[in-house]
Every structure is written in structure tokens, then in C-alpha cells.
Design a protein around this nucleic acid. Structure first.
Length: 615
DNA sequence: GCAAGGTC
């Protein structure tokens, strides 16, 4: 019995081979320099002593496209909603390796990631295998269900194969088709329309995508909120006290009011009293929680705000560190460690570092806290954590920062929360209440290894006693203005995309880069912070789409993408079919396309107006 | 020349 096992990426093929073979395997090269074939023996249930070849793909093997007669310029873009779709092999050498290895195999076992795309990649692998060996049938494939590379977990997966989930395969196939039809049709429409009036240059493309436009929409929306903001004046009362040479501010518990006369009346009442009374003095223990285990989105947000690194560069650096074995897999949504995770080994490897080695040693020798568990699990990868030690002086600039950050984050996860004492004094002046806070950090704990988070003792309050009468010399009525929101930072944009389901951990950075490269937005530095600002072209496009009267949908907002995601889940659960969803979504987008097509003159005019107004 | 999703 000969079994062909195929994983989603080379690193998984290698690790699984090590575990199943007990370290006794032979390696053969393939035509692709990253892809290896591992040969070994393994006993599957009811199939003792099988010859196994384990290999991998590198992501998707096959892409979809339109036939030649529907290529750019060969038809009107509206035809693309109903055009045929053909498959194209993306990586012929990897495809051929699977076909060839399948030829003398009796069975195919899929070891792709345990998520929707992984299921579909499994189906692509089946097609490659079937091409080499027609005996291999889709109903007869083994599918291994594993979510991390712990030895017993992998062995259990090998011994309990399930079937390929064809509903999940349908869901992904549906997503691919919608993204292609919508993206290609609208992109051609926009590009030709804007080019005809020289709004974009000859070689340029004005792309539309189901992810890139909602992303652009978020940026434009924020920009307009900043621009349209009108400050409002407000009034409030504040008391400054001094006792034993210590000054402190008491803030009004009512905050502020937009009615000057109202505040004036309350203030007049206060002024009738020369003294106030400390009516309450509270001392409370507060904790500042250690961070959660690290996901891709968190890594990108933090690298953007702490190091001013773009999301793409942060992920790029993490990938390089992963490929050299220093970090775990960097694309993960999981924010809890598996129960069996071996923390101690990893502390041990970090003990010698001059910067954080003492913290690792402390955790290694004196015990550690189990990290907090978040609510997300992608069932494919653990949180990002250091694997092997490297001296950061040997790394490139970005990699240095990312490695140190990941190690410190990991160690911080295993430390105790920080603890402080918060003192709150409540002052009553007339009938108005004011409070002052003082914080004393008593146990820094995780903060010592994690300098990215600031939680510091504030100025201490004077030594009040409950019931103290204090003379009020400086109780004043003040005014202020509401301030506009800030422009969008990359970290905020990543959060918005994540919350709204735009893109995935692996693609969020690419969508942001895409709208930069299309000149829909620019990154602009103001002081120390970098903001993402829409260009007139980006503004014009979003505003034009928002002006069109679609039926209950919007091309610039995340709702349609969200609807698609929900429908895909329903396909996976068997509550609806791929065909129904395809027809549904195609109808919605076809209508939107037809309205956009009719309004192209207005769209082009509006873009031109916005561009001229800003030049 | 178009999308978004994998990964090297």
C-alpha cells in the first residue's frame, strides 16, 4: 500500500514527516526548489506498514480566469458576469510533482490547513493527483484534521482521517468566482471611463475589488469626518487644590455642558461656599492586564504604531524570520495557546539574550503564568511565538524590531498582570461633585519585559482625610472646544478591516498597499505619526459611487463583502448552495454594474471636479 | 493591464 500525503506548505510537510516517520525518512528533490518529497514507512488504521510519500504545495495550485474571447478589449465588461470561467495552473512544476507522485500511489491524504481555503487547496491537490492516477477518486480521499504540530495531535490526525469537505470547497469556489467577475468587470469599466477623459494616464489602471473599495471607503469616510467637523464650544468647572505644597486638579463629575448660562448658574451657586469637603476617599487595587497571545493583525497594528513600519513590511519581516526557523508561522488568527504548548523549552532558548534573557531565566526557573486565552482560533496555527533563538545583531533592521517584539510579547504573555493602587478623592463644593485620581504602580510584572506598553504612576494626591474641609481659592469656570477626530492611521485601518471582515490576516496589508499603488490614497507624515489620506481620485470615486442610487447596496462600504462571507458560511453548513449564492450575488452586482455604467459620465465629471478643486 | 486567496 502506497499513500501520498500532501500539505499546504513545505514547512508542514517536513514537520509531519518527522513526526510520522519517527525521524527515519529519505528526502528527494522536486522540480521546484522549495518542494521536497519525503519517503518513509507508517502504519495507518487497517493499513499497516504503508509506504508513504509526503510532499506539499505552496498555497493555491490553480487560479481561475476568463477564456481568450473575454479578455480585456475583446468584449464589453458587462459580459463578464456570465462569461465562462476557465482554470489555469499557477505552478506547473508543483502540479506535475503531485501528478507524478500519485501515479504509483493507492491513496491520497490531504494535509492542508484546517480552514476553508485549505479545504479548497485540498481539492486542487486532488485534481493534480487525479491527472496522474485516474484510480484516485474524490470520495476516496483521506483528509487529516490537525490544528497544530504537537506530536500526539499529529499522530491522532493521521490515525483518524476524515473526508474532504466538498461544501467548504464550494464556498471557496463561489468566493473566487464573485471576486473575479466583479473585480474584472468594474476594473475595466472604471479604467476605460477615466482613461477616455485623461483622468488617469494611458498605462494606469483604476481597479475595483470587493476588498480594496471598502478599504478605500474607510479612509475617505474618516477624511470627510475630519474635514466636515465643526468645533463646538463648551463650559465646565474645575477646582485646583493645594495641600502641604502638593497641587492637584479636581475634575467636575458632570464633565461639560454646551450651555454657558447653565454652567454659569451652577458656578455661581458654588461660589457661595468658601470651603469644600472631601466626602469620599477610595483606595482600590487595579490591574493592568498582560497582552493576549499574538495574532497577525495585532503584530501588524503594533509594528505600525510602535515602529512606524508598514503592515506589509512587518509581515514581510516576520515571514523571513519564519523561513529561517526563528519564529512560528506568522499568519494566524489564533490568540490562545494549545493546552499542550511547551513554554519552558522556549524560555530556555531565550535565556542567554543580553536584553531579555534575565526575564526568560526568571520564567524558566521560577515558573510562569498560563497566558490569557483569547476568543479566536483559526484551527490551523498557534499564536505567533519565538521558536529558535537568534542574536538580533545578526538581523536586518526590520527583522530586529519584529523579533524582539515577538519575543518580548511572548514572555509578557507568561508574566503576571501589573498591579497598582488607585486613589480617588471626591470633593463636594456647594452641591457640585469633583474627583481627583492618583495611581501608584506597585508591581510592574509584565511591564518590565514589555516596554511597548506604558502604565506609570501618576502624580500622587496630597494626604487627604475623609471629612477634610478645604478652602477653595482656585475654583474656576473654563471653556474649551470639541476637537475633530484624527486622520486614519494604518493601525486603525487594519482594525476596521479586521472587524468588518475585509481581507484576511494574510491579505489585509496587501489591500492597503493596493490602494496606495493605485493612487487612491497616500501616506502622509504629520509630526511623528503617519496618516493615510485619500487622493482627489480616491475621494472622487467613492463619492461618485455613493451618489448613485443602488437598491439597498453600496459599492464603497463593507456590507456586500460581509453578506458574501455570511453566504459562504451558509454554503459550508449546507444551508444553501453555491449556485443559489452565485446567482444572488451576481444579480446584485449586475444591477450595480448597470447603474454604474449608465452613470459613468457623471462619475468621470465628478472625479474631474474633485481633482481640479484640489490642484 | 483586471480580484482575492494561498505561499516561497
Amino acid at each position: 500500500m502506497k499513500i501520498l500525503c500532501v500539505a499546504e506548505k513545505p514547512s508542514i510537510a517536513k514537520e509531519v514527516s518527522k513526526i510520522l516517520s519517527g525521524g527515519r525518512f529519505q528526502v528527494r528533490n522536486s522540480q521546484n526548489k522549495y518542494i521536497k518529497n519525503y519517503d518513509f514507512k507508517f502504519s495507518f488504521p487497517n493499513q499497516a506498514n504503508c509506504d508513504v510519500t509526503m510532499t506539499s504545495v505552496a498555497g493555491h495550485l490553480i487560479n481561475i480566469d476568463f477564456p481568450p474571447s473575454f479578455q480585456w478589449g475583446k468584449c464589453v465588461p458587462g459580459k463578464l458576469f456570465d462569461a465562462a470561467v476557465i482554470e489555469k495552473v499557477l505552478k506547473q512544476d508543483i502540479f506535475d510533482n503531485i501528478s507524478k507522485e500519485a501515479r504509483n500511489s493507492n491513496k491520497l491524504m490531504i494535509w492542508t490547513d484546517c480552514d476553508r481555503e485549505g479545504e479548497y487547496i485540498g481539492y486542487e491537490i486532488f485534481k493534480a493527483a487525479n491527472k496522474g492516477n485516474r484510480q484516485i477518486e474524490v470520495g476516496d480521499i483521506w483528509r487529516s484534521k490537525f490544528s497544530h504540530l504537537e506530536r500526539n495531535h499529529v499522530l491522532r490526525a493521521a490515525n483518524n482521517p476524515i473526508k474532504l469537505d466538498l461544501k467548504a470547497v464550494d464556498a471557496v469556489s463561489c468566493r473566487m468566482e464573485i471576486d473575479l467577475r466583479v473585480g474584472a468587470s468594474f476594473t475595466r469599466l472604471l479604467t476605460e471611463g477615466l482613461k477616455s477623459k485623461s483622468i488617469i494616464d494611458k498605462g494606469d489602471v483604476a481597479s475595483y475589488g470587493t476588498c480594496q473599495f471598502p478599504t478605500l471607503g474607510f479612509v475617505v469616510d474618516r477624511y470627510k469626518r475630519v474635514k466636515n467637523f465643526t468645533p463646538e464650544q463648551f463650559w465646565y468647572i474645575q477646582v485646583d487644590l493645594e495641600k502641604d505644597d502638593v497641587k492637584c486638579n479636581f475634575n467636575w463629575t458632570r464633565g461639560h455642558f454646551f450651555d454657558r448660562l447653565h454652567v454659569m448658574n451652577l458656578y455661581q451657586e458654588c461660589l457661595k461656599h468658601k470651603e469644600g469637603k472631601i466626602i469620599k476617599l477610595e483606595q482600590r487595587r487595579t490591574t493592568n492586564w498582560r497582552p493576549l497571545p499574538l495574532t497577525t493583525v495585532e503584530l501588524q497594528k503594533d509594528c505600525s504604531s510602535i515602529f512606524k513600519m508598514s503592515a506589509k513590511d512587518a509581515l514581510g519581516a516576520a515571514e523571513k524570520l519564519y523561513n529561517r526557523g526563528f519564529l512560528s508561522y506568522p499568519r494566524t488568527e489564533t490568540d490562545k495557546f494549545p493546552a499542550s504548548f511547551d513554554f519552558k523549552t522556549i524560555f530556555g532558548r531565550q535565556k542567554s539574550d543580553p536584553r531579555w534573557g534575565n526575564h526568560a531565566t526568571e520564567l524558566f526557573d521560577n515558573g510562569y503564568e498560563n497566558p490569557r486565552a483569547g476568543k479566536h482560533d483559526d484551527n490551523a496555527h498557534p499564536p505567533i511565538h519565538p521558536v529558535n533563538y537568534v542574536n538580533i545583531n545578526e538581523l536586518a533592521a526590520d527583522e530586529k524590531k519584529v523579533y524582539e517584539y515577538v519575543v518580548r510579547r511572548f514572555l509578557a504573555c507568561c508574566c503576571k498582570d501589573a498591579v497598582g493602587q488607585q486613589t480617588t478623592a471626591t470633593l463636594k463644593w456647594g452641591i457640585e461633585l469633583f474627583t481627583a485620581n492618583g495611581l501608584m504602580v506597585t508591581e510592574r510584572n509584565y511591564l518590565d519585559v514589555y516596554p511597548y506598553k506604558k502604565w506609570e504612576s501618576s502624580k500622587q494626591l496630597p494626604k487627604f482625610q475623609q471629612g477634610d474641609m478645604v478652602s477653595i481659592k482656585n475654583g474656576v469656570m473654563k471653556d474649551g472646544k470639541t476637537s475633530p477626530p484624527n486622520h486614519m492611521t494604518e493601525a486603525e485601518l487594519i482594525s476596521l478591516m479586521d472587524i468588518n471582515g475585509i481581507g484576511t490576516d494574510a491579505t489585509i496589508a496587501e489591500h492597503i498597499e493596493k490602494i496606495v499603488s493605485r493612487s487612491y490614497v497616500v501616506k502622509q507624515k504629520k509630526g511623528k505619526v503617519e496618516y493615510i489620506i485619500p487622493t482627489p481620485l480616491g475621494m472622487g470615486l467613492i463619492e461618485s459611487f455613493d451618489k448613485m442610487h443602488f437598491d439597498n447596496i453600496s459599492l464603497s462600504k463593507p456590507f456586500l463583502r460581509k453578506k458574501l462571507e455570511l453566504s459562504l458560511d451558509q454554503i459550508s453548513k449546507g444551508e444553501t448552495t453555491k449556485e443559489t449564492v452565485l446567482e444572488d450575488m451576481k444579480m446584485l452586482y449586475r444591477q450595480a454594474y448597470s447603474i454604474s455604467n449608465q452613470n459613468m459620465v457623471n462619475l468621470v465629471d465628478h472625479c474631474k471636479t474633485v481633482i481640479q478643486a484640489n490642484s
